[in-house]
Amino acid sequence: MTVYLIRRLMQSVLVVWVMSLIVFLGVFAIGDPVEILIAPDADQIERERAIIALGLDKPLWEQYFIFVQNALRGDLGRSFVFNEPALRLILQRMPATLELAITATLFAVVIGIPLGLLAGLKPNAWYSRTIMAGSILGFSLPSFWVGLMLIMVFAVQLGWLPSTGRGETAMLGGIQWSFLTVNGLRHLVMPALNLSFFKVSLAIRLTRSGVRETILQDYVKFARAKGLSPTRVIGVHVLKNIMIPVVTVMGLELGSTIAFAVVTESVFAWPGMGKLIIDSIYVLDRPVIVAYLMIIVFMFIIINLVVDLTYSFLDPRVRLGESKA
């Protein structure tokens, strides 16, 4: 176990290093930073002074070395646009994204599991077919399109819900949250629903196949034979057994939910990390782009590590030695 963990950690460090190289070379070497950093009307002497001040006259490997050194100290550069450290800028936006992603995951569990249960218990009923057809749509429709339709129906036509921003926020633990105010909640519902669309389909599928497998087990037959009410058989004996894998997968999907939040945040102008990176790409705010990419790579490596460990913990049949990178 310890050997495995150490090997995995070393692999992760290697991946972070390779990614930092790719990101650095990609962002700083393909485009010309001088063109972007220095005002176009600067004369030759000013230009050269600025190049030296920014360290752009040094060879590329030395620049990369300085970048890594700073990055290890938690300094990923300053945003050109906000004139703030890029790292702080991103961390400031992180709670909004996390709030959205966690709410979406909750929606997926609350909506997906009952629907999946329904479809699993009566696989041939008309409503089960409708649910399954709906879940195919959930997998195949682009999420920005679903977001647009939600806005069109609920914000423009019906006028029930606001379509942009976080609304009023309240302070908790030094961070602003939307879910603490009624107005904030109203702003949260649609983006979270949009982001959860794919996860709901996933939860439906997982629950349905889980139910169909579990219902044939001997202990379910025995519970029935004992004369327990159907509600109790389903609620306790079936549901309890399928909840663990479903909830685990939903939790482990949190990483990809955060990634897909980029789309939802852009549609609903939700001020999270995803919106920040898209805005930064528009204005070529390179330090923010680099910092975001590095943070995301780092985050995913940790998530993948946790996922692998959790799987092996939950299912001893997964042998650690052969686990994926």
């Binding site: 990609g26 990483g255 990809s256 990634a259 897909f260 782009i289 995913f300």
Partner: peptide
């Protein structure tokens, strides 16, 4: 494996952020 452990949208976004 490494590639599939990152969501597609993220990888595509990274590449386009770099290449334009």
């Amino acid at each position: 494996d490494l590639q599939l452990s990152f969501p597609t949208i993220l990888v595509a976004l990274m590449i386009l952020a770099i290449l334009g």
